[in-house]
């Protein structure tokens, strides 16, 4: 029986046809006289057959395939900075976010120090303390996930996330971001609304990219 235990790994290799020469001979000799090990071989072969025949390979979900195809057919032959950043996000969401925040900090630092005033930089965007002028607007369009849209446009591999923000895309292709205040809160992370058409009343911030939602209805 001790011999049987020692031979155990060799029996496995025998089943897989991985034994050569002397080892193969040893096992075959042993099998002739050991019912216990014969049974082992039979059972392992049956198990191997069961796994081979009955294991159903899962298929890759269509959205993952599409994403990978998009990424591969993008025009960047070698993954560049954006891919690396994207990779950081897919691999380590937390560390990736940290990296991005650091990056944004360095970009934003001159603004923080008051070196550059925002209004000097972006035309039509005057967000000084007493300059904000909200324009009442009525917007019609389709709800989309702004984060997914951005990542798609950059050809970065990504998955939709509960933290992603919704926006509204007008038929003309303009994308409105939603401010998380008032009714906007109900819209911002509600991905059930994706692809739904909405009519939204609210206020546009200077520059016209941000929307303070007052009310909305499905159309």
């Amino acid at each position: 029986m001790k011999l049987c235990q020692e031979l155990e790994p060799l029996l496995t290799a025998y089943v897989d046809g991985e034994l050569l020469g002397q080892e193969n001979k040893t096992v075959e000799e042993h099998l002739k006289q050991c019912r216990h090990c014969q049974k082992q071989i039979e059972q392992q072969s049956a198990l191997k057959k069961l796994l081979r025949e009955r294991y159903r390979m899962e298929t890759t979900p269509a959205h993952v395939r599409a994403r990978i195809r998009r990424w591969l057919s993008s025009n960047q032959p070698v993954p560049g900075f954006l891919e690396l950043l994207g990779e950081a996000f897919t691999l380590h969401r937390f560390k990736g976010a940290l990296a991005l925040m650091t990056l944004l900090f360095f970009i934003g630092y001159p603004y923080l120090r008051g070196v550059v005033h925002p209004s000097e930089q972006v035309e039509g965007f005057a967000l000084g303390p007493d300059q904000v002028e909200l324009k009442p607007v009525e917007v019609e369009g389709e709800v989309l996930c702004v984060d997914c849209e951005l990542l798609d446009k950059a050809n970065l591999p990504h998955a939709h996330d509960a933290d992603h923000r919704m926006g509204i895309k007008t038929p003309a292709g303009k994308i409105w971001n939603i401010i998380p205040s008032g009714k906007g809160k109900a819209l911002l992370h509600n991905d059930q609304l994706i692809h739904k058409r909405l009519r939204v009343k609210g206020y546009a911030y200077p520059g016209g990219v941000y929307l303070n939602v007052e009310r909305y209805q499905k159309i």
């Binding site: 390979m57 899962e58 298929t59 890759t60 979900p61 993952v64 395939r65 994403r67 990978i68 993954p79 891919e83 990779e87 897919t90 691999l91 591999p157 998955a159």
Partner: peptide, 27 residues
Amino acid sequence: MDQLFSTALRLTKNPLDAEDLLQDTLL
């Protein structure tokens, strides 16, 4: 791809991680 994804599922035991693992692998 399917062989990789299927294996990724068995390794991570979680579809979302399996998607990530597949993408990281291909990247």
